[in-house]
Design a protein around this nucleic acid. Sequence first.
DNA 1: GAGGTATGTTTGACCGTTCAAACAGGCCGC
DNA 2: GCGGCCTGTTTGAACGGTCAAACATACCTC
Lengths: 343, 343
Amino acid sequence: MVSSPTVRDVAARAGVSRQTVSNVFNAPDRVDPRTMAKVLTAVEALGYRPNRSARSLKTRSAELIGYCVPSRPAGPLMDTFLHALCNAAEAVNRHVLLFTAGDGDMSAYQNLVAQQAVDAFVLSDAVDDDPRHRWLTERKIRYASFGRTWPAHGEQPAPWVDVDGAAAIHDIVTGLVSLGHQRIGFLGWWHGIGAMQDRLRGWRAACAEHRLPHGDPLVVRAIADTMADGRAAARRLLNLADPPTAMVAVSDVLALGVCQELAGRGLVPGKDVAVTGFDDTMLASVVEPGLTSVRQPVERIAEALVRSLVGGDGHHDVRVLLRGEIVSRASAPIPTPTARSVT
Amino acid sequence: MVSSPTVRDVAARAGVSRQTVSNVFNAPDRVDPRTMAKVLTAVEALGYRPNRSARSLKTRSAELIGYCVPSRPAGPLMDTFLHALCNAAEAVNRHVLLFTAGDGDMSAYQNLVAQQAVDAFVLSDAVDDDPRHRWLTERKIRYASFGRTWPAHGEQPAPWVDVDGAAAIHDIVTGLVSLGHQRIGFLGWWHGIGAMQDRLRGWRAACAEHRLPHGDPLVVRAIADTMADGRAAARRLLNLADPPTAMVAVSDVLALGVCQELAGRGLVPGKDVAVTGFDDTMLASVVEPGLTSVRQPVERIAEALVRSLVGGDGHHDVRVLLRGEIVSRASAPIPTPTARSVT
DNA sequence: GAGGTATGTTTGACCGTTCAAACAGGCCGC
DNA sequence: GCGGCCTGTTTGAACGGTCAAACATACCTC
C-alpha cells in the first residue's frame, strides 16, 4: 500500500498552489473553469482524495455520525434502518460510526465527543422520558432521534423524526370498516412504550369516528412482545361474549400469535377474522396467508434524521412526523389509501 | 459545546511537557510513576481525551474498521453480528465505520482507503469466488472475511473466519440417528453458495458414516430462500415412495416452509417428522413448536476477525474455523453434544 | 488616470498529536 | 574525573489539510 498523494503533489502536477486544489473540492465556484480542469485531471491521474483526518483536524468536524447499536432485542427493522442511514449519510459526504454502550451508560457517548470522533448522534428505540435525550440535550450535543421520547412530565426539547402510528392505525381501522367490520379489537403491550399509546390513540379515535365500540374489553395487553403472549391475548378477545371480527395488533409478532390462535380454532385469518400487524417485518411476508402490516419509511426517516444533523447549526429542534405505508396482504385485504408521506 | 482541552492544557496543569502527556497514553512504561499520577489527575480534572483526528493524522492509522452493510437481503443475523463486531473492535480501541456499496462496485472501498478513513475492512456474506476478495488482495489492503470464499479454480489467498457448517450438520444428522431416524432428507438451495455445499457435504458424510441412504432423491433444492420454496421442496420429499422421517434444511426459512407443509398434511413437526434449520434466527424461536437450529457464534467470529486485523501487520493469512452450536427445540429434540468451539 | 470592486490565486499560520532526536541527570566502571 | 549507559523528560518538526488575509489582475466608474 503505497503512500497516498497529497494536496501538494496534485498542486505540483497541475502547476497551481495547494490552496487552489483545496478550493476545487471546497469552493468550486471560486476557481476558474480552466484551472479547475487542470486540477481535476491531476487529481484523476494521481487518484487523489483529501485525507480525512487532516481535514477533520483543521475543520473540527469528524464528518461522522455516531449510532449506538442496541444491545438486547435489536428490533427487526434495524438492519434496513442502518442501510438507509448509511445511504443518507453518504449522500452528504458523511459516514456512520457504530458503537456500543451499556444500558444507561453514557460514557461511550462522552468519550466519542471528547475525542471529537463524531459530530452528532442518531438515536433509535426511544423510550418514555429517555435519559439519553436529557443527557445529550444538557450538554448541547447534536443528535436526532428516530422515535419520539414521551416525556414523563412537561415537554422536552427533543429533535425527533417519527412515524405517525396513530394515523397509520386510524387508516387501518377505516380500511377494516370498509370491509364491513363492526367490532375491532386492539392488541397492545402492557407498559406503554409511547409508540404503543400513540397507536392505541389512533384506534380509539377511528373507532369513535365510525361509531364503533372502543371500550375496555376490546383492548387487551400482552406482557411481552412474543407469539405466546399474542396468542393468549387473542384468546381473551375470542372468548368475549361478542368477539371482534378484526384484530389490530401493535406488532407483527403479536399478530402472528393471533394467527396461531385462529388456526388452533380452525379459523382462517383474513377470511373468518381479519388480522393486522405493525412494522412489516420478515414475519409478515413469510407467514401464510400474508399479514397486513405497516411499513415504516426507513429511507425517509433516515434522510430526515441526517438532514436535521447537517443543517448549518441552525434549527436544533426538528420534529418530523412521517406517514407509514400500509402493506395490504391476505390477512386483512384492506384497500390501500395510496400512501402519502408528509414532511 | 466548549472546545475540548488539548495535550498542552493537560501538560500545563500537570507541570510537564506535551510529550510526557502523550507518553502517558502511548508508552506508559517510559514515564515515572509519580509523574504519571500527576498527569492522570490533570487528565481526570479536565476530562481530556486525545483528539482522534490529530492522532490519526500523525500515526497514519484511522483506527476504524470498514464494514459494508449488505444492500439486498441482509441476512437475519446481521444485527447481532454487528453488535458483536463493535464490541470486539472497541475491546482494542477501534470502531466500526459503516458504508454502502453497489453490487460489485468497489469505488466506495477505494475512496475510503484513499481518504485513509479506515485501516481495514470486514466482509461478510462471501460468495463463491468473491470479487471483493480478489480486489482487496490485489491492492494489499487489509481485510478479513466472515465466511470463506470458495474459489472457482485454485486456492485463493483469503483471510477468513467461518463456522464449520459441515461439522454442524454432521452433528445434527448424528443426533437424528440417535433419535431413531433412518431416512434423512436434505433441503438445500439451487446454486451452490459455498456454505450450502459445505453443509451438504456434512450431511453426506454423516449419512455415509451411519450407513444411511444419501443418494439424489433425498436431496432437494429450493430456488430461493423463501417459505414457499421450502414448502415445495418438502412436498417433493414427502411424496417419495419411501419418504424421509427427518429433514435437514439449510436455513430457518426453508425449515419453516417444511413445517407449513407438514401442518397442511396434519403432521406435527418433531413428532411425526423431525425438522431442523440453520442460523437460529428469530423465526426458529418464534415458530410452534420451536425449531431446532444451528447458532453461529457471532461473538467469537467477530473477535477472531478483529484480532486478525489488528495483529501488528504480521500474518495476513488467517483461517479460523469455529464450531456452531446446536440449539435443540421441539421440532427435533436431539441431544446436544455440549457445544465446544475450536480455534 | 486615480480609486473602487470583482475575480482568482497564493502565502503564512495553525489544527492537536506523535516521532525523532536532543537533553539532563544519576550511577557505573576504570 | 571522564566516557558510557540507563532512565525520564523536553524540544523542534512534521502529518495533510483549511482558514484568513495578502496579493495580483482586470474591469468599471467618475
